[in-house]
Every structure is written in structure tokens, then in C-alpha cells.
Design a protein around this nucleic acid. Structure first.
Lengths: 143, 143
DNA sequence: ATCATAGTACTAGGTATACTATGACAATTT
DNA sequence: AAATTGTCATAGTATACCTAGTACTATGAT
């Protein structure tokens, strides 16, 4: 169950799928070379349209974290992001600024916000507790 | 020139206006009791439609940082946010998680991202001298 | 009381995004 | 060859954003 959708979250469905996959990669649940769920599989599992998953995978491909091969499937790539470090830093700085502003506005101490960020990072760094491979995947037949 | 719009920024115009005002308040350029630019003034100055400014001011009112009085104008309120601390923490945690994930993905060290956040906070607290006293707060002596 | 100024309310139209729903197609695997 | 994969195209619905304009109501100074 890699992909989870929260219909209350205002964030677009396809971006939630993107985040799901990226989290799975960050935590090691998905490793370089692994195949993602197929479009149709994922669509059924997440109860969304094929195209929505397709949109998400396309986004992931643009991010450079997966590679889709027609007829074969969609696979996690090994190499990192393609952007210049300077560009990446700019993106992070922007997010950091916004977080600082928001924290200030909500009267949350900056150090506390930093602690929360450390916690957020810690959630990602439980790399691959085990390679639990479930053979019981074939619960659906095609319609 | 309190309000600045970046037409290249994908963020909605009205939210950019909201951020502009909130930054002005955070830095002290706008103080409690101060009047905001009128709808028509701001619309001309920012070269947007009145309704867009109105939308922004409405948002700010919902946030509780300004109070609009018909016929008189829109004024900065003194009191802080209306949300429960627990709710505010949840929002910040969500943003912190996302920032952590993004930093991880872009291979930016978490400590460096934290430094950027401190920098973001510093930008808010620099350009002002005291005179601002909030009622009922305690831990507010960060230099 | 009047009048200019402030915000408010409403309708309408254009553009863009998000998502669903199909159907057809192309490349790969078996 | 057949099945499975991603890809593409089109159409339709819904929603958000922004502009434009018109009319209204409350405020405060004269």
C-alpha cells in the first residue's frame, strides 16, 4: 500500500501520489531499479483514474526519480536530481522562508519549528526496516 | 510600496498580497492599529483588480490579522491568531515535514536547511526597533 | 443633511488546472 | 501472436483565479 490519498487534503490527488512515491523512495521501501505499481494497478488501488496516476508518474519522471518504459513499466532510477545545486538551494530557501513566516505568525518559536523539522527528517531515515516482500498481491482481477 | 506582485510566481495574486501584508506586519512596517491601503489604492498600486485585493483582505480577516470596517478602512488588529495552539502546531509540522522531504530529495543537508530557516526568521526580525508589545505572551526575546 | 470615501455584494466571462471517462495505439515481454 | 505496459487524444465536469463592471451600504467630515 505505497500510495495513500487523503481526500480532505486540498493538495491535488496526483501530487499526493507523487509524495507517496517519493516518501517510499526516501525511506527505502522502494529502491533503485524497483518497479512501481502499473498505472492500472495503482489506479485501482488508489481508486482514481488511470490518467491521474499517469500524471503523477509523468511528474516523477520530470523530477528524474523514475523512468517509464512503454510496455515494461515504471522503474525507480538510481541517480539523483538533475538541477544545479544553486537552483535546489533556492527552492529550499523559499520554503524555509515561508515556514519561518508561518511559524512567526502562529507564534511558534523558531527553535521549536526546527525541532519539528528534525522530526520530519527522522521519519524518513528509517531506511528499509526489512525487505518484506508480500507474494499476496493478486487480490484483484481485471474488469 | 507594501504590496509586491511577482507575475512569474505561480502563487495566486491574492495570496501574494496576503503574504506582503503579513510580512509588513511581521517586520513592523505595519503596526497594530495602522490602516492598510484602501482597496482602490492597493488595486491601482499593485495593478490588479479591486476584487483581488478584496479577496486578499478577506483572507487576512479570516486569519484574524486585520479588521475591515465598512466606510472606514482596513486596520491591523493587535491580537494574535485565533487557532488553538495544537492546530497551529499541526500546520507547522506539516510544512516542516514537507521541507524535510524536499531537502532530502535535493540532497541538501538537514542542518543546512535549518540554517536557511534561521536566516528566513532573521529577515523578519531585523528591520525594526521595539515599541511593539503583545499582550499576554512570554517567551519573546529572541534576538 | 450631504457627499465623498470606505468596504460589500453581485453578475458575468475568460483562462487555467484537476479529475474522470473512454477508446485507441505503440512498445515490450511472454 | 497475445497479453501487458505506458502513451496519446478527446470530451466532459467541476473548481479556482482573475478581470470587469455595476450597484449598494456604512462611515465620517463638512
Amino acid at each position: 500500500m505505497i500510495i495513500t490519498i487523503d481526500h480532505n487534503d486540498p493538495k491535488p490527488t496526483y501530487l499526493q501520489i507523487v509524495d507517496s512515491i517519493r516518501r517510499a523512495i526516501a525511506t527505502g521501501a522502494l529502491q533503485p531499479g524497483d518497479q512501481l505499481p502499473t498505472l492500472r494497478e495503482a489506479a485501482v488501488q488508489a481508486r482514481v483514474n488511470r490518467n491521474t496516476v499517469s500524471r503523477a508518474y509523468l511528474e516523477l519522471e520530470h523530477l528524474g526519480v523514475v523512468r517509464a518504459r512503454q510496455g515494461a513499466g515504471c522503474f525507480v532510477t538510481s541517480d539523483g536530481p538533475a538541477l544545479e545545486r544553486k537552483e535546489r538551494l533556492k527552492i529550499i530557501q523559499r520554503m524555509a522562508d515561508e515556514l519561518a513566516l508561518e511559524a512567526h505568525h502562529y507564534q511558534i518559536d523558531i527553535e521549536q519549528a526546527i525541532e519539528m523539522m528534525r522530526a520530519g527528517a527522522a521519519k524518513l531515515n528509517i531506511p528499509r526496516q526489512s525487505q518484506t516482500h508480500h507474494p499476496a498481491d493478486k487480490e484483484e482481477e481485471h474488469v
